[in-house]
Nucleic acid binder design. Structure first.
Lengths: 247, 247
DNA sequence: CAGTGGTCTAGACCACGAG
DNA sequence: TCGTGGTCTAGACCACTGT
């Protein structure tokens, strides 16, 4: 299918194939329709079945198709919930159809202290950039965010005007790309100060999210504590049974 | 490593290899230690690199190892948080070092009604088994759970003594195996009735979890609404950047 | 029984990291 | 430059589904 000159920049064959199949799913097939067989796809695209399977594995992981041995591969029902993916606040809000923004951003360099130091695996006396933001969606407060980044990884970050995405800044100026994050989510109620900052009554329910983010080399890049308004935010995701080989 | 007569029943070679590597990670190596190279493992175990890679891919998804092209595969730091996996309440509690239990279980057959019918994709007039349970951990209430299962899939479930795991019953008696679930998590505060059932003060924070579970054929098997005490429960998981091929 | 997905072999070349 | 993981080829056999 080389002639479909879609706006794909995908490098690998399986990624190209995945993009093609995604188009097929979204534009031509309906839920529970049967996809072409792996052998058909392999022949059509001039690749091996393994390559086809990689593309389909990916789509299966994303919940777009399901497979039944002996029967075939089928289109999943439209997804109600998104799988848990590592996205920026900006992308997260856009995916929810909301317009993201920030208020009262403050960025300063401070010493890490016990808690932040422990989370980042550095000395409590090491310097970190501390970014405080009130994140908004459609102009209304959505969450309070405190982000800490080791100064050793991003020197002078605190003296840089923070325009655009923080993650983009980290990639472009420091070569730091977040690849993985560990999150811990608690339910809580808001105290007076936080409630006021978020524009809701005191004792309103909220999510408290702690996150440690790593790059591909397993270095800790960021520690963030966020508090989300529960009336505007929910976690929607897909989970799967035992990761496939374990049974 | 054929001579390690561990209690493994794993079928595929990659699953056996994964089990061996897991032992290696947990018993002999330390975080950031280098794992054997893929080619070494392939030769040692008499399999191809692809098979080795499947085992390592798996461990990578589970957050146990990380790989760097050109450098090698390394042991991840001990996991602070678990990846989101589809587990039963029982397994979830055990993983947290708590002793799971149930109180005041009730199971009845009722008509689905609008909400449950919509979630399960059946008629509001169709029959469902409704299971209500107060789930306990170490003898203390942990969550309230309302589970609904279409009677067409599990006839007479309501007339069956519910002993052992519900999921086990579904597999053994009805051939229903849950493979995937969509979850939506909200933060809330408890009203008087729920607070009393959970043994906490009114207006205590809590998680409200809605779940639709599917089998491998994408049939909806179960709808469940659960309310968890926030003082005893948190969601801890790992998230990854864009699913690999998308960039 | 025919056809499907699930697993595996035995190679090959490429892209990247470190000395 | 060399060794590593990342991708791919061209086959093969098995396990399961549906008829």
């Amino acid at each position: 299918m080389g002639e479909s000159a879609g706006p794909q920049r995908a490098g690998t064959k399986s990624a190209q194939l995945r993009a093609y199949l995604l188009g097929l799913i979204e534009e031509q097939l309906r839920p529970h329709d049967k996809m072409p067989t792996e052998r058909e796809l392999a022949e059509t695209f001039g690749v091996t079945r393994l390559t086809v399977r990689r593309a389909l594995d990916q789509l299966g992981y994303e919940g777009r198709v399901y497979r039944t041995q002996g029967a075939g591969t089928f289109v999943s029902e439209p997804r109600i919930a998104k799988s848990v993916e590592l996205t920026s606040f900006t992308d997260d809000m856009r995916a929810r159809g909301l317009m993201p923004g920030s208020q009262s951003t403050r960025i300063v360099e401070v010493t890490a202290g016990a808690e932040v130091g422990a989370q980042l695996g550095i000395s409590p006396r090491d310097a970190v950039a501390h970014i405080y933001r009130v994140r908004t969606a459609d102009g209304e407060p959505m969450c309070l965010e405190n982000t800490y980044i080791p100064a050793s990884l991003a020197p002078d970050l605190a003296r840089r005007p923070l325009e655009g995405s923080l993650y983009q800044t980290l990639v472009e100026n420091y070569g730091l790309r977040i690849d993985k994050a560990e999150q811990s989510i608690h339910a809580t109620v808001l105290d007076g100060e936080m409630a006021q900052a978020l524009g809701v009554p005191e004792f309103s329910p909220a999510f408290k999210v702690s996150r440690v983010a790593y790059d591909a080399r397993s270095r800790r890049i960021e520690y963030a504590e966020s508090v989300y308004r529960a009336d505007r935010y929910s976690y929607d995701f897909v989970i799967y049974r035992t990761p496939k080989g374990t049974k």
